[in-house]
Design a protein around this nucleic acid. Sequence first.
DNA 1: ATCGTCGTTAATGTAGATGTTATTGCATAA
DNA 2: TTATGCAATAACATCTACATTAACGACGAT
Lengths: 228, 228
Amino acid sequence: MDSPPRQNLGISAYAWLKHDIIRGVYPPGEKLLMSRLKERYDLGIGPLREALSQLVAERLVVAISQRGYRVASMSLAELNDIYDARSQLEAMLLKLAIERGDDSWEADILAKAHTLSKVVEVNTPDEVLDVWDTRHKAFHTAMIAGCGSQHLLQVRASLFDQAERYRHLWLRETVFSEQALEKKRLEHAALVEVVLARDAERATEMMREHLLTPVPIITDVMQRQGLL
Amino acid sequence: MDSPPRQNLGISAYAWLKHDIIRGVYPPGEKLLMSRLKERYDLGIGPLREALSQLVAERLVVAISQRGYRVASMSLAELNDIYDARSQLEAMLLKLAIERGDDSWEADILAKAHTLSKVVEVNTPDEVLDVWDTRHKAFHTAMIAGCGSQHLLQVRASLFDQAERYRHLWLRETVFSEQALEKKRLEHAALVEVVLARDAERATEMMREHLLTPVPIITDVMQRQGLL
DNA sequence: ATCGTCGTTAATGTAGATGTTATTGCATAA
DNA sequence: TTATGCAATAACATCTACATTAACGACGAT
């Protein structure tokens, strides 16, 4: 048996750091001490710098010459800008998907919508959160996958990553509230309906609204937690 | 007098590599030998790996574990996908700019359009190319700057960078042909007119078409040069 | 021809040297 | 006493040189 073809440490450092930044292990604006990271991940400085460079390109980390790296800050202004950008972009992708999507695209939407609606209590609450989030992402991705452009999907993914820290605040408020979940279920069902009916006009409008609903909730959480 | 606040070598390595890749100094798919890069830029391996990691995140370079880095390949399929993505995205940004833009946005469009139309023979043909390209970019950026979203602009810039190698092939065909330049002048003037008239419908349609005009030309160049 | 072995080349990782920034303590002035 | 400047020191980021390990290529055997 082959041992898994060993990938270089920079790549795994990247994955770990990104994971931890998104989950809020390091608060926004925190300095990322090389010595600390070295210890925490048991890696050398070289691979860490590689990983951090990639995260700089993705705007999750900022580098200041001769003064190391910091976690990118968060703000209400950025929250609003990211969600505005995301809702506009996603609406456009949906319009394209409705124009260009084929039968298997439609089928996949139904499949993913079904899977999402069937999330039941698994084990720990945290596991519910993970499962619901994974399926929720898969559902939304399926909706716009029909747009047919790798590069548009890639650009969307990049915005998504930047939104991830904000999204995570919203998730904890939503997944643990049966009422909020039910509301989402209805919105999703309504979206599926108009999308399959290929009503681009209404679908894009609904998508924009759907994507903006977390903003007030996240604003609230941020103010409560004083993450400003 | 302060010496310029010394920035770390990784950052300048990044700038040089990006510049050279976009200009075609390294052909698509070429292996980027550390030893060669080290010699060419007179830098150590550490900073180079940092720079390459960033370029991987920007998709100009691909990394293969244990086998180093290569320049991202180019293909007709990618050409079409990138230009499709760009034209759709730019059209959307233009629509937003028309909805949201203020007076200074309008003024800036006129200013940049004027500057662009006044490119005269400067010195070498290569200098004409640089000047025209710079002003052309500034003009298009001014048009969509009114959209008001930093993140949408950033996402656009990222697609732009990925298109840059293809665009460069087109530039050389266009800038040195008085006929082609004149055609662009007319298209730009027409765009300015409908944008200032805030006719979103026609403006987005014209922008999409305008952005796709290079595709057949680039296709042609790529086939002639056998860059496939 | 195909497979395996060995030597070469190159990528990767680490440790230590170097230079830069931040901090601390102390002296001096308001 | 409180504030301000300065110097010494500590902490840190950054870079390079070397050690390690994996991929590549040539050559020979089956």
